[in-house]
């Protein structure tokens, strides 16, 4: 802690049980509590937003409709006509990640997308889903995906391993991208915030100098808001692209 003159940038990621002894008995963590809050926010946006069922939408209804339309057109543009089947999944994924990223920016909250176990699980769901979809649509023909048509047969020993590795690295890159972005942002918050406390403890000049890291943190909040949206978007659009590959095989 700052009082001990060390920066504990990683303590914020430590898991604890939430909801008192009941949560502790089922190992319900504060990360899961944030997931519940995020889910409740998503559902209430749609419920309270769409409750008027107005032809001319109010602000909240417009927000809910923009959320729906944005993800729907992303699915439709990326995957094609079959995209509507996967729309609820992509919608869930995008808003689950977005809410996790945004809620994590609130003080005293917890960022569940900063846990590799969470992001990797989501990425594995995506990759298992795309593989199952591809196998169910194309059957064994799916495996031609690893050897592009028209490539010289002699290059097969080279191309096939490369394609398999690139396919298998999808969940890794997908999960680490989100995880690393969230962790980096939150570590920087913590480090600069610790600088403020440490400099302020150093005397008058330190108090003046503490304005520096404070200003940096203010800028960083705006930047992290961008990252929160961007990473949720990247995760879901890559999911759409993978689903497109699964449906159309290239």
């Amino acid at each position: 802690m700052a009082a001990e003159q060390t920066i504990d940038a990683l303590g914020q990621f430590k898991l604890d049980t939430a909801l008192g002894p009941l949560g502790a008995s089922v190992n319900f963590t504060q990360s899961n509590l944030m997931m519940l809050i995020a889910s409740a926010l998503i559902l209430s946006l749609l419920y309270f937003g769409m409750r008027p069922k107005a032809v001319i939408p109010g602000r909240l209804q417009a927000l809910a409709e923009i959320a729906y339309d944005g993800i729907y057109s992303m699915c439709h543009d990326q995957i094609g006509h079959e995209g509507r089947r996967f729309f609820p999944f992509v919608f869930t994924l995008f808003f689950f990640i977005l809410m996790g990223n945004l809620l994590g920016l609130l003080p005293f909250s917890f960022t569940y997308t900063s846990h590799i176990a969470v992001t990797l699980s989501l990425a594995l769901v995506v990759i298992v889903l795309t593989t199952v979809v591809a196998l169910s649509i194309h059957g064994l023909h799916f495996f031609t995906y690893f050897f592009p048509a028209g490539a010289p047969k002699a290059l097969a020993p080279l191309i096939i391993p490369v394609e398999v590795i690139s396919y298998l690295s999808r969940p890794v890159s997908l999960s680490i991208r989100l995880f690393a972005n969230m962790v980096a942002g939150h570590v920087m918050f913590e480090v600069f915030a610790s600088f403020i406390v440490m400099m302020a403890a150093a005397g008058t000049f330190g108090v003046i100098g503490a304005a520096g890291p404070l200003a940096l943190n203010v800028v960083l909040v705006g930047f992290e808001l961008l990252v929160a949206f961007l990473q949720a978007y990247v995760f879901s659009i890559l999911t759409c692209i993978y689903l497109h590959d699964a449906v159309h095989l290239h």
């Binding site: 898991l15 319900f28 963590t29 689950f96 699980s121």
Partner: peptide
């Protein structure tokens, strides 16, 4: 830490 894995189980349920 058992919580690391338990959060994934709860993640699956919640998601």
């Amino acid at each position: 830490n058992p919580l690391t894995l338990s959060q994934v189980v709860w993640l699956a349920i919640i998601f």
